[in-house]
Amino acid sequence: MSAIDTFLYLSPMAIGVSMPILAASLGGLFSERSGVVNIGLEGQMLVGAFAASYVSVRLYPAIGAAAFWLSLPVAMAVALLFSALHAVACVSLNANHVISGTAINMLAAAFTVFFSRTVTGSGVIDVRGGIMRYTFPGLSNIPVLGKILFTDTYHTTWLILFLLLASWFMLYKTSFGLGLRSCGENPHAANAAGISVTKYRYVGVLLSGALSGLGGAVYALCFDKGFTGSIYGLGFLALASLIFGRWNPWGILGSTVFFGYASTVANVATVMPAFAKFPTVLLKVFPYVATLLVLVFFSRTSAAPKAAGEAFDKDKH
């Protein structure tokens, strides 16, 4: 297989796997742009994966494949409620964002397995079917692009790409987005301008819950076919994408797709002769090392929201 053929062959899988990361990373973007550091993306994704799997299994006998689609908004809602814990701690109780985020991750890991074992008897929920791949008739015949975008895709990919567009529009083209970003850059100025920092930060964190819940649900239904008690560090990969993409929606799209290809190549390398001798560990650690290198290279001009991680107290300056 030539290089371009290999690339095209891997594309459906790489694009597919990068979408859940993109969703969670967009969630992280809303949270951090509003000024709340969120390392709990992993936990929020896990809760989404659990909720989607549970709802799918419960509703499938009654309504069939519609259960998978219905489970997505449910997973978003459950993860949103779960992220409210982080919001309350960080916004209302001035908690350390990193400690609260760690608690969110540990809580998600413990809670989901606890409930899954209590209600189903095992720590695993198997979903039969899940969301299926779809090849667009006609469009898939377009050279190159047809293979990358319209062959073996999931409908959820288009949903998440739409959310990316919507997020960009919300953050950069609306007064809501300006307000949200100002809370992450200079909350005191925002407050003086009559913006409720508390309200915007709550919205930012809750959106991160909903979006990473969607990411977890999509991963569970498309790839894992259920809940397995882990989301394999995808939430931290989303965090790396957020930093590598320099806290910008289009940068995040680029970094998640980039990381998606890296992890796909690493996963198939063992069965592809072209990569047989290649040390796959380099591809696996690539996202994390690349993120650190980007931070090193841009250490003088940090792109991070200036007030991210800082508690906001109206009375203190």
Binding site: A89, L93, I99, S100, T102, L107
Partner: peptide
């Protein structure tokens, strides 16, 4: 354990 961490963060 996770809840203890959460409440340690939410000292306020």
């Amino acid at each position: 354990i996770a809840i203890i961490i959460y409440f340690s963060a939410a000292i306020m």
